[in-house]
C-alpha cells in the first residue's frame, strides 16, 4: 500500500506543490507553508490534527484568494519540535485516522448488520 502510494506520488511529482513561505522564525519552530491545489477539504482537517499535537502552539490555515488554488498553513510550536516536523506528524496522523474509518466501514459492510433494500 505504501509503495503504491509512493509510486503514484512519484508519477505526479510536482515541485510547485509545496513551498515554504517567508516569515519563518530563526529557529524553525514557526513557519508558513503554501500548498497548491488544496482547499478546505485538507486545510481544516490538517489544522485540527496539528493543533491536537501538544507541542504545537498555533496552527491556522487560509485560502488567500478564492480564484487561486492555493492554501497557506501556519504552524508555530513551543520549540521542542520544528514546524516541519509538526506538519509531517500531522499528515501521518490524519492518514492513520482515515485508515481507521475506512477499516471500520469495510468491517461494517461485511458484517451485514444493517437494513438493506435489494433492487
Amino acid at each position: 500500500m505504501e509503495d503504491e502510494v509512493e509510486e503514484q506520488s512519484a508519477q505526479v511529482l510536482d515541485p510547485t506543490k509545496f513551498k515554504i513561505l517567508p516569515g519563518a522564525s530563526e529557529d524553525g519552530s514557526a513557519a508558513s507553508f503554501q500548498l497548491m491545489n488544496e482547499d478546505h477539504t485538507l486545510g481544516y482537517s490538517l489544522q485540527y490534527v496539528i493543533m491536537k499535537n501538544p507541542e504545537v502552539e498555533f496552527c491556522g490555515y487560509s485560502i488567500p484568494h478564492p480564484s487561486e488554488p492555493k492554501m497557506n498553513i501556519r504552524i508555530q510550536t513551543y520549540g521542542k519540535i520544528s514546524a516541519i516536523d509538526a506538519l509531517e506528524s500531522g499528515l501521518d496522523n490524519l492518514i492513520d485516522l482515515c485508515d481507521v474509518v475506512e477499516e471500520k466501514f469495510i468491517e461494517q459492510v461485511n458484517s451485514g448488520n444493517y437494513k438493506s433494500e435489494e433492487p
Binding site: V5, L13, I20, E26, L42
Partner: peptide, 29 residues
C-alpha cells in the same frame, strides 16, 4: 483520495528534505 492527497504532501516534504530550505530550517533548529 484524502489519504493519497496527504501521502502526496508527505512525499513532497521528503523531496524538500534534500533541498536547502528544509535542511536550513533543521540545522537552525
Amino acid at each position: 483520495v484524502l489519504q493519497k492527497k496527504l501521502a502526496g504532501i508527505i512525499f513532497e516534504l521528503k523531496v524538500l528534505d534534500e533541498t536547502s530550505e528544509k535542511s536550513r530550517l533543521d540545522t537552525e533548529f
